[in-house]
């Protein structure tokens, strides 16, 4: 049997939405709580704390990740993006947000940040997603308001918008 181990704080250097942080975190602090508490990024919502609902999805090193199932202590050197990184400081919505707005892809907005971040990951690797691609990527994100139809539509529309934008830049 081991000696009693003191849960010492862990130093992490983590970049969140382009801001570098040098933090001492308790080992048990979940990424969701680090974001919402210490970093005051309350756009990431917590729905079940069991990894079932997907509301707390953020990007960790580009991968859609349930922030309720990751300890902040694990993320030394990681880059995290949350919903707060999407819109411009001038209020310009990101094309994915704009697509949700135009297609009524949200009602209460609670699951929305998780949907948006999951969509971000999908649209990084798929330029013109079909509805089935959206279901594959976001099928683990629960929404109780919309019935999903407009979320699928929004993500497909965002794919088209981003493709146009990329082509314009090319």
């Amino acid at each position: 049997m081991s000696e009693v181990v003191t849960p010492e704080k862990v130093r992490i250097r983590i970049t969140v939405n382009d801001t570098a942080h040098d933090l001492l975190v308790e080992p048990r602090t979940l990424l969701a709580d680090l974001l919402r508490g210490e970093l005051e990024l309350t756009g990431t919502h917590v729905g079940c704390e069991q990894g079932v609902c997907g509301a707390c999805t953020v990007l960790v090193d580009g991968a859609a990740t349930r922030s309720c199932l990751v300890f902040a202590a694990q993320l030394d050197g990681a880059t995290v993006r949350t919903v707060e990184s999407l819109a411009g400081a001038d209020g310009t919505l990101h094309p994915i947000q704009q697509a949700f707005h135009e297609n009524h892809g949200l009602q209460c907005g609670f699951c929305t940040p998780g949907m948006l971040m999951g969509a971000c990951e999908l649209l990084e690797r798929t330029t013109a997603p079909e509805p089935d691609d959206v279901r594959e990527a976001l099928g683990g994100n629960l929404c109780r308001c919309t019935g999903y139809q407009n979320i699928v539509k929004s993500v497909c529309a965002a794919g088209a918008a981003l493709a146009t934008e990329r082509n314009g830049q090319a």
Partner: peptide, 11 residues
């Protein structure tokens, strides 16, 4: 629904 405290080791 929060975990109990633990020591974190990252070998």
């Amino acid at each position: 629904m929060k975990p109990a405290a633990f020591a974190y080791l990252a070998p």
